[in-house]
């Protein structure tokens, strides 16, 4: 097999004595959607925040394309073409779509001033592709619907040519129609060879969208499964009881059965 796109080895993170992520190892290949599941507080968001640079890890190593990577802040992660779509849509509500899309990476004129017209033009182009109904380019994103806001967040990841995409419950704030739009988009990105980590607790969604799934419980990895080899009940069992089905590769957090 080729080397994985991302490999997170032995990742650790504690908050004041509580081990939020406890020696977790997971990987991701190009063109693959890998789910990370678990209850609230299982450590799934924390684990991937270490990949996106939002949190600094206490221990462990990250390899990108087999090379050891240094990721200490969001800028580092972006340099590795890692983009994140956060659960609460990390958008500045008071800015318009273009300002949000380019936040931290503004296009500037030769004199160093931000080029709003150019950014708006690029935003119109990318959003026309993602969400043709998007029209409100001059209002602050606070005034947009959940789906429109999600379009902006996704456009940001797509525009900057993400190779690795982290989606933290991307459909949590969305309606049925909009959820379908995101699902279509995930399929499309996958076909372009992008690797996607999908954090979710909707098992149905994970079965539908993911190739493999990692289940976490109390900061530990319960196990890794190919979603087609297991039932939804198997996944539930892993999430709730930490019980690994036969086809799973068990992790340190798996329930020890004699």
């Amino acid at each position: 097999m080729t080397s994985p796109l991302v490999e997170m080895r032995d990742m650790q993170k504690s908050f004041g004595g509580i081990k939020a992520v406890d020696h977790v190892t997971i990987d991701l290949y190009p063109g693959e959607v890998v789910g990370v599941l678990g209850h609230n507080g299982a450590g799934k968001s924390v684990l991937l925040k270490m990949l996106s640079g939002a949190l600094q890890r206490d221990g462990g190593e990250i390899y990108i394309n087999g090379q050891k990577a240094t990721i200490n802040n969001p800028r580092d992660a972006r340099n590795y073409q890692i983009e994140t779509i956060y659960q609460y849509l990390a958008l500045a509500d008071n800015l318009d779509a273009a300002s949000n899309l380019f936040l931290g990476r503004e296009l500037v004129s030769p004199l160093g001033f931000v080029d709003d017209a150019q950014m708006e033009a690029e935003t119109r182009k990318i959003l026309a592709r993602l969400n043709p109904n998007f029209r409100r380019f001059h209002t602050p994103v606070a005034g947009l619907s959940g789906g429109q806001r999600q379009s902006v967040a996704i456009a940001r990841a797509v525009y900057f040519n993400a190779k690795i995409l982290i989606m933290d419950e991307p459909t949590a704030a969305l309606g049925v129609q909009e959820t379908r739009m995101v699902a279509e988009l995930i399929d499309q990105l996958k076909s372009e060879g992008i690797g996607i980590f999908l954090i979710d607790h909707d098992i149905h969604q994970v079965k539908l969208l993911c190739d493999r799934a990692n289940v976490m419980k109390n900061g530990q990895l319960v196990g890794t499964v190919k979603v087609d080899d297991v039932t939804e009940d198997d996944l539930l069992g892993m999430i709730i009881a930490g019980k690994c089905p036969a086809s799973a590769i068990p992790g340190p957090g798996a329930l020890q059965t004699a």
């Binding site: 994140t84 956060y86 990390a90 509500d93 008071n94 800015l95 936040l103 931000v114 602050p140």
Partner: peptide, 24 residues
């Protein structure tokens, strides 16, 4: 209105977390 500094000032005011996640 026309500099990154200004853009970041308003972004950080609107959503400090988003600004930080954007690498500011």
């Amino acid at each position: 209105q026309r500099t990154r500094l200004g853009r970041y000032i308003f972004a950080a005011g609107g959503n400090p977390e988003a600004a930080e996640l954007a690498g500011i």
